[in-house]
Design a protein around this nucleic acid. Structure first.
Lengths: 376, 376
DNA sequence: TTGAAAGCGCTAACAG
DNA sequence: CTGTTAGCGCTTTCAA
């Protein structure tokens, strides 16, 4: 695994390390040179092309040459440089752009992608962003690194920009319900999920239901930069909001949408304000579990319970099933979505050209955070 | 935005776009060619070297050339290929290896690293692993991609292997209390943190205290592969365990260490068994918050409370402060650790050669999950 | 079946 | 201040 520090030039083989490393501290950085394909070729007494064929399992290598080469590779601890490979073709790397690494639902997607990638020679790199407005830059950065495919989770970038990108490299958009001939999409069934939520709340007898969601537009740059212009009504949270409004209107009720940042503590603050109004809601449908947990903070802090204010979340993160929390939520199986996205990417790399839209089923998990209101 | 396949030479400048793009579907993948530094040079009527100097802000470019070049870059939407750059030197990329993307404490570290990296030209890539035994492969994979520096969170790999790696590329190990002349470390003050936990529990009157921790060895490969041999007593969880044992012994008490996987639900199962023994503990000191949450699941499910079994966690993840949970925990400020690691890496890239060990202070956050036992 | 040679796009000497 | 030149390590024709 580790090349021999005291390697000297025997048998006319190239020497990869200093003949005399300093006494008991390793050689200074840069002193050490990694084996290259040329070194391996020399050591095995064959050509670079031969080595290349062996490491790629390409057609046309005799068993005995393969053996020789593999021995040399092992001896020199040779590793192909990805950058050099990328210059000639593939980088064996898939990239995923992700907002809020701290959002457990999003990390479930990464887990699913990892699982799907495990049996392949591809490596996953994650490009995390701190603000939605950074999505475009992160995608560019992945493209600059010549990844073989890109997954993006509801990025705030324009459709035409994405189509441009996906002309050059396979792209899967996760979450957004776009229909493009250029790139594929994987989404949860947001309409169905919201239907299940609303039906559940109505069945319990709730009428004053507030929808707590993240602001559609987070930063001015998203407005000003044409790159970011896209149909925001195709985003998961917009769809949930639209379906919510629709349900309320159909029952002759007044939709109440409250906006907040994506942060749990901000959701708590916003909910706390909501509770002090004249006519507070008897139920809160939160756009995701992080927001829901924030609402529960405010409700618990006010000494209230599910009969006072019920809460429904979305995503069914681990915390939701905790007995001390017991949050009713919509399970949309992030890991499934992640592995599906990888599958689509690999298909594209394999040659598929028609675009595909996949929608995953979702299921409401009813728990103790929802109950019939005290006075209907 | 899109380069042109049929570029023709008008005005002596190379043309990268279609004059007439196809009606309503973009060109097929691969048809599109990105602008290269040569294209820019041609368009601006200068040499490649000149363009290179401009994009690197290198010394020796006249203002008027800079203007011309920048205009050409903008016009052609030129982006330097990282792979080509990497072959000649830096890739402007830092890598971080991380186990369990779903562990919030670990993602806090990533957040901190991102913040520290924001004002720099470096991009962060995350190499997530699924099992501890994959750490070595993930680090290799980052090295293969010629990142300019690597951060690794308590990787299960041998010290000598790490020293070899860090001879070729700057490395910061997060969590492990190694002292190496080759690589830097950033750790939390695990001894102090554990001291605070044990003092708190003793002060409350607890004597039967169990320590719930993850198994030291997760997979046989870690035992069998010499690459992985390292002083496991330098790992954070080992130190917490050792300090716990020490505290117990010093008070003449019997240390009780229970092992589990890193998973919340497994911790729940193990805790549930613990509660059914003859002489169950009055307090559980969990190695991290995920395990602590699992313990709380079992305790809540058994209808017990803090006076029956108190719980202390480690990391102080967001959930710990939730009023419905209120978990006493040790805050070790993951984002601080992450940005510190980046700082060290950038220093190394900047030329530092002596190794540095940084230890971050930690603080016990006392909440309602700990109370005096019913019968002392 | 094997190898020689031509680049991929960029940076870093070195000349002019 | 600017351009020419020589590679970095790999893959890929194309001959032998």
């Amino acid at each position: 695994m580790v090349s021999d520090p005291d390697a000297v030039d025997r048998d006319g083989e190239s020497v990869l390390r200093d003949a005399v490393p300093s006494p008991n501290s390793g050689p200074a950085r840069g002193t050490v040179r990694n084996a290259t394909i040329q070194d391996v070729a020399d050591a095995a007494g064959v050509s670079k092309a031969a080595v290349s064929k062996v490491i790629r399992n390409a057609y046309g290598v005799s068993p005995k040459m393969r053996t020789r080469v593999e021995a040399a590779i092992a001896r020199l601890d040779y590793r192909p440089r990805i950058a050099a490979r990328a210059m000639r073709g593939t980088s064996y790397t898939l990239g995923i752009e992700i907002a809020q690494v701290s959002n457990e639902f999003l990390t479930m997607i990464v887990q699913g992608a990892l699982d799907a990638l495990a049996p392949t020679p591809y490596q996953l790199v994650v490009a995390p962003i701190r603000r939605p407005s950074e999505a475009g830059a992160a995608l560019q950065s992945l493209a600059d690194r010549q990844v073989d495919g890109i997954m993006a989770i509801s990025p705030m970038v324009g459709e035409s920009w994405l189509e441009d990108l996906s002309d050059r490299i396979p792209v899967v958009i996760i979450g957004r319900h776009d229909v493009s001939t250029h790139y594929d999409t994987v989404t949860g069934a947001d309409r169905s999920g919201t239907d299940q939520v609303m039906t559940h709340l109505f069945d319990l007898g709730h009428r004053r239901i507030t929808h707590l969601t993240t602001e559609a537009i987070h930063h001015e740059t998203i407005i000003n930069d044409p790159t970011n212009w896209h149909r925001s009504d195709l985003e998961p949270h917009s769809i949930r909001r639209a379906v919510y409004i629709d349900h309320m209107r159909r029952r002759g009720l007044d939709p109440q949408v409250t906006y907040t940042g994506g942060d749990e503590l901000e959701a708590q603050t916003v909910t706390a304000e909501l509770l002090t109004t004249n006519d507070p809601p008897t139920a809160i449908f939160a756009g995701n579990d992080t927001l829901a947990m924030g609402s529960l903070r405010a409700i618990a802090a006010a000494g209230l319970g599910p009969e006072d204010v019920s809460v429904v979340g979305y995503d069914d993160i681990t915390m939701a099933s905790h007995p001390m929390v017991s949050l009713t939520s919509v399970d949309q199986s992030g890991s499934q979505i992640g592995s599906e996205a990888v599958r689509l990417l690999l298909e594209r790399i394999g040659g598929r050209t028609e675009s595909v839209q996949v929608e995953e089923d979702v299921h409401l998990r009813v728990r103790r955070s929802t109950a019939s209101p005290r006075q209907p």
